[in-house]
Nucleic acid binder design. Structure first.
Length: 519
RNA sequence: CGGGAAGUAGCGCAGCCCGGUAGCGCGCUUCGUUCGGGACGAAGAGGUCGCGGGUUCAAGUCCCGCCUUCCCGACCA
């Protein structure tokens, strides 16, 4: 390492002000992280822990989201919340507990969620006979059990019944930020936990057309967020009946591709038709003075987006965050020996920090003397901070500053003049580069298959999305899933008709659908 | 919920087969030298060995039950 360091210094002397390509890779990382190639899922697990995003809790399947991880989620939440408000929605809050009987009312819905519901049966504890323990008081059994919400359609539609009488009460455009519980057998931090955070929008409309327009609008909001904030390219489409939300007439979704070639559903938007209105008897009087059932939508994204964000961009050195969602966008590290030196450098560094802050950039000036510069470099690297600035005595003399970008691991020496503008542009560049990189990756991993052999080969050996013909039956989809683990991720929204034959049964098909193995 | 593996200091692990004084590395504390890619030396602190029973003079070690995590299935966002 010392030799490398020496070489680096030599290089810098000879080509100061010129870009130094390819930062020294650190051997240390290998000790702490699995690599993606070695073991992708271990890499993901390590990353979540080492980047200080979340950890497992004392409760099975439930995670603790740590401050750094929560800061990212908070940013996502704030941006999405703004987008919801801009499209006319308001936030509200409904109860965590739902009377069990509510679940009986919509047949498909109950069937979809029954197997993973947590149930509250008692409301009191007491001391055990021997006084050593706390036990459930059997005398305090609830008359009707309460379900911990796995989603809130039922309690919300029961409530909407009282809110809606006339077409003048419509539309209702409500969103809630909440936690939900689905009793999962096998969990992974962010990707699948028993409790997770999400938002669920629930809207009520006078007409079918308006409800469908709302469903599509919110899908577009999600796609916009994924692409422009998360730098995550997504495909839009509808789900096959097998994959449809329990109780929906049509489920729209955005699907993204992770670096291991598996698809991840990043958001869903459901057209619920009049299913819940009928189940909960929610009617309104239209302008012709006739009773009609209300039309409904619901839409949601969850902390699972954190998983998508991590798996889409990060590398073997740790987390890589798109600048627009990074809690810290720029870290400034001073290089110093003495206190006097630190004071001089700090003067310059703080000035630069202020310049950056004036542009709305989130900056952290790390003048701790308890950690060495190299240690800080590593830390910011595996925490995914997009840009790191280093400033030392040499830079003070030369009016320069070292700029390192996380996405490409390149370092350059910049002149200090106009540094704020340069960094601002660099952040934009990184944001775009991450999107482009993810987009090219997806392009390279998107295939067409016309025969069963071809299909199997792609799914098993290449991964990624496969456009293929399907005869439209749930039975065929199930068989394909049983044999290859690939499912229909979506039926593309663009209405590209193409005559063909189902890859599995050979029956006629009018269009290709997108298959993949999925999270 | 089925099959496998693991749980010993904050983290990573050895010790268990063959019962008898709880160990190593990293991290942590103090001091000194260092500081442009995870510094070095010296001296320290830190443990109900996952939890609960049992066997035994004696259990981290043997036996039984449970909990948690990871991997593979079924289920699922």
């Amino acid at each position: 390492m010392n030799i490398l360091l020496f070489l680096c210094l030599l290089l810098r002397k000879h080509i100061s002000n010129v870009k130094i390509a390819n930062i020294i890779p650190y051997g240390n990382m290998a000790k702490e992280f699995s690599t993606r190639a070695e073991n992708y899922s271990q890499w993901y697990n390590d990353l979540v822990i080492k980047a200080d995003l979340a950890e497992n809790s004392a409760v099975r399947g439930c995670m603790v989201i740590k401050p750094y991880g929560f800061a990212i989620w908070e940013k996502m939440r704030d941006v999405l919340d703004g987008m919801f408000k801009d499209t006319g929605h308001s936030n509200a809050y409904f109860p965590l507990f739902i009377p069990k009987s509510f679940f009986n009312k919509e047949a498909a819905h109950v069937e979809g969620f029954a197997k993973e519901c947590a149930v509250v049966t008692h409301y009191r504890l007491k001391n055990s006979e021997d006084g050593k323990d706390i036990v459930v008081d059997e005398n305090a059994r609830l008359e009707e059990e309460l379900i911990v919400r796995p989603t809130s359609e039922t309690i919300i539609w029961d409530t909407y019944r009282n809110w809606i009488q006339s077409y003048r009460d419509l539309p209702i455009l409500v969103n809630q930020w909440a936690n939900v519980v689905r009793w999962e057998m096998r969990t992974r931090l962010f990707l699948r936990t028993a409790e997770f955070l999400w938002q669920e929008g629930h809207t009520a409309h006078a007409t079918k057309e308006e409800a469908i327009a709302e469903t599509k609008q919110m899908l577009d909001v999600y796609a916009d967020f994924a692409e422009n904030w998360m730098a995550l390219p997504v495909m839009k489409g509808t789900k096959s009946p097998n994959e449809r939300f329990a109780g929906a007439v049509e489920t729209y979704c955005i699907e993204s591709l992770m670096q291991d070639g598996k698809a991840l559903q990043a958001g869903t938007s459901h057209f619920l038709g009049q299913n819940f209105a009928k189940a909960f008897d929610v009617k309104f009087l239209n302008q012709q003075n006739q009773q009609e059932y209300v039309w409904a939508t619901s839409w949601g994204v969850s902390t699972r987006l954190m998983g998508a964000l991590i798996m889409a961009h990060s590398d073997d050195n740790g987390l890589v965050l798109p600048p627009k969602l990074a809690p810290t966008q720029v870290a400034i590290v001073p290089i110093f020996k003495s206190k006097e030196q630190l004071e001089k450098i700090s003067e310059k560094a703080v000035a630069i920090k202020k310049e950056l802050q004036a542009k709305g950039i989130k900056v952290k000036y790390d003048d701790r003397d308890t950690y060495k510069p190299g240690w800080k470099f590593s830390e910011y690297e595996f925490k995914g901070v997009p840009v790191r600035l280093a400033i030392g005595p040499r830079d003070l003399e030369n009016g320069t500053i070292e700029v390192a970008r996380r996405d490409t691991l390149e370092k350059e020496i910049y002149q200090q003049s106009d540094i704020a503008n340069k960094v601002e542009h660099l952040l934009d560049k990184i944001q775009n580069n991450l999107y482009q990189r993810a987009f090219s990756f997806r392009e390279d991993k998107t295939f067409k298959a016309d025969t069963w052999e071809e299909f199997r080969d792609i799914v098993e050996n290449k991964g990624g999305f496969v456009y293929a013909h399907w005869d439209g039956t749930p039975e065929t989809e199930q068989k394909i899933k049983d044999e290859t683990k690939a499912t229909i991720r979506l039926i593309p929204l663009d209405d590209k008709r193409e005559e063909g034959k189902c890859i599995y049964t050979g029956k006629p098909s009018e269009r290709r659908v997108v298959f993949a193995r999925a999270y």
